[in-house]
Structure formats: C-alpha cells, structure tokens
Design a protein around this nucleic acid. Sequence first.
DNA 1: TCCAATTTTAGTCAAGTGTCAAAATTAGGG
DNA 2: CCCTAATTTTGACACTTGACTAAAATTGGA
Lengths: 219, 219
Amino acid sequence: MTNFIVPDLKITPRPGGYARGQDGFEHILRSALSLLVNHGSAALTLRRIATESGMNVGNLNYYFRSKEELIRELLNAVISSYEESFDEIIHEPGASAEARLENMVMLILEDITTKKTTRFFPELWAMANHDPFIHDRMSELYDRARVSLNELIAEINPELPSDQREILALFISGSMEGMTVFAGYQKPWVAQMPILKTLAKKSFVQLVKSLRAEDFTAS
Amino acid sequence: MTNFIVPDLKITPRPGGYARGQDGFEHILRSALSLLVNHGSAALTLRRIATESGMNVGNLNYYFRSKEELIRELLNAVISSYEESFDEIIHEPGASAEARLENMVMLILEDITTKKTTRFFPELWAMANHDPFIHDRMSELYDRARVSLNELIAEINPELPSDQREILALFISGSMEGMTVFAGYQKPWVAQMPILKTLAKKSFVQLVKSLRAEDFTAS
DNA sequence: TCCAATTTTAGTCAAGTGTCAAAATTAGGG
DNA sequence: CCCTAATTTTGACACTTGACTAAAATTGGA
C-alpha cells in the first residue's frame, strides 16, 4: 500500500542548535512557499517572508545569509521530498513493473492537483529560464523522475533500446507535467482528473508495451 | 502546403493615425515581448520597455493608458496569431482529417521549440495564477486549440461521444504543452524533438483511432 | 548560572515604481 | 508650403520597495 501524497518539504536536520532553531528554519521556508503559491514570485521578498512568518526581517538573515540562499534551501527541501517519493514508489516490494508504473502515474497526476504543485511549478519553470541554479536543480529533479520511469519501462519492454526508452520516459513525463496548466488545482478540468488518470495509465502502458524500435523512425 | 510558423504578433490596425504611429505601437509590443522572453516578467517595467524600444517613458503612456493595458494588448496580439494559425491548419482544403491532426501536432511541437514560446508561455502560466485577465485570455486560447482538435477527432473517430472527445483533446493538448519545459528552445532535449514529433503523432493518432467509450471507465 | 542560540530594534542606502502635464517636434492632407 | 493633428520629449511628482546589517535584547538548556 503506497501513499500518493508528496510532503511539501523534506528538511535535513541542521547540526547543533536548539529545537526552536529547527522550527524557525522550517517555518521560514513554509512561509516563503506559501507566499510563492498564493501571490507569485513577485511577492517573494524578505520583508513579506518575514511578515508571513511573524518574524523580523533581521532574523531571516540569521538563518540565511542571503535571499538567494533562502531560495536555494526552499528548492532543495521541495525537490528532496519528490525524490524520496519517487524512490519509494518504484521500489515497492511485491508489485509488478506495470503496477509500479501505474502508481508512478497516479502519484504525479495526483500531486498535480494540489495547490502547491499547480502554483509552484509554473513559477519554477519561469524562474528556471533566467536563473541557472533553479534551472540546474529542476533538471536534476526531472532527471530523477525519468530514471525511475526508465527502469520500469525496461522491465516492461526489455526489447526496447536504451536511448529509445529514454525518449519514451521523456514523452510520458512531459505529458503528465502538461496537465498542470489544465487540470491542476482550481483549473477548469480538475473534475476530470480521475478520467485523465485512467486515460493516461492506459495510454502509457499500451505505448510502453507495444512500441518497437522501428516506431522511432521518422515518417 | 501549410506553413508551420506562428508569427509572433498579430496586430489589428488602429483606426486613424499616421503610419509611424502604427509602427510605434507594434514596436513597443515587440520590445515588451523581447524583454519578457529574455529577462522574465520582473523585467517588464515601463522604463525598461522604453529603453528597449529606444523611446521615452512618457511616450508609452501616449500609446497605452496604463501598464496593464499594454500587457493586455501584448497578450491579445500573441494569442490572435495562434488562433489564426489553428484555423488555417484545421481547415486546410483537400487534406484528410488524420493528416490535419498530424499537421496540428507538428505546428504546436514546432512552435514549442522557438525561443518566444519556450520562454513566454511559462511566464504566462505563472502570471495566470494571479492575474484574472491573463487567466481568462489564456483559457480562451486553449479552448480554441481544443475545439480544433475536437473537430478532427470527431472526423477520425465518429463513434466517440462528445464529452469523451473533449477529454481526449485535453489530454493531447496538455501532453504537447508539457514538452515546452523539456524540449523547448535550448532545453536539454531539443535535439530529440524530431523523434518526439514522430512519437507524438503515432501515439495520438493511434489513441484517437483505437479509443472506445468503455476505455473511459475507471479501472 | 551562564553561554550560546535566537530574536528584535532600528536603521542604511540605493534603486525603482507608475503616472502625468506641458512643451517640442514631426507628418502629411489640403 | 502651411497648418493641424499625431507623435515624441522633457522633467518631474510622489511614493514604495528592495536587500542587507550592527548591536542590543531575550531566551533555552546543559
């Protein structure tokens, strides 16, 4: 029995310090996330983060040397959580490769309907175009997702050459991400997400099973 | 023979005025677009637009009563161009429905690899989450795209009920949009776009042809 | 108790924001 | 060529906001 919910943040405990410090650190990141989700990247200023977290501006500087460092930590905390979830899903003991692929699809499409993901990821996509750090960290996340998909594809259709499996994983991963804009939180098509999940699972599994090396030749 | 390039802007001529005025109007919008594409939404300030277009700040106010109006006009110009392109493609005389569907897929995936689209759309997705006007105008664009797809699906697979055609159109449209982040301009997978196009065409056409009403029942 | 961890206070300094009125310049029909 | 309407420049207003810091105050817990 897998859990299809990805926690908002996964924070690695910092060495030394009081428990209060640990809470403060996490509380700041949660406030920043909430700001980004509810008001967009323009609202992500130290002043507003301070207000949001009921703290003082100066205190942010105690936890994070700079705004950039704060954003880095936030991104790390969000992404780490995904990486952990992916690992759990694809290594679920006793489940067939096909079932684990379906679970992966469920996890991602389910996650897409959360407010956090629907709002946060488009912000990240936009930011990644002009911020090298965000770009790199996002690439790592998606690489990891594709590696996971790739493993499952290899189990389901071992005939497929490695480079073609990679493109197939890309196609599947990209297809799912695209739903964010249409069937995410409070989007016009959220209500249809259950059907979309069914459609996606069937379509992807069929694609993985039926694809032959020749299908990748341009027509 | 269809043209798979979507012009950046489609500007409806304003009544009265000199030719210079028409140029100025378009030039400002192009500068704003270029700024958004190259430096992100944070760079979209009246002063930077003025500098970019070699004009004076005050002159922007002559063309647009406010910054908001400028952004509205920009969005209209970009979106109108897509709407026109969609109409041309799906009404191409003498082409089969399947061929027109493939052309639509080609148009969209080709467009995704342009710098304008790769950079501009993620900005819009992010903005749409906090700006009602952008949200509505984007919805109109995507509605239009899906209506086009829907017409073609109906021709190819007339058995499929209307509401299921709509979901299928959504799935196809969303799948393609998702590629922006991975195989757009200067993204790690651009080089594989030709293969992705082949894969997408085959996968979508097959999906449209083979789908039965029962496939939409949750499993 | 006492010291390190955390928080507040109170700023610095700089840069930028959208908008506007009025003057100067230019285009092009008559 | 002239004159008026279209366009452009000038120069400002009034105000917000940005990231960051040093030093003092408070708190936690071994």
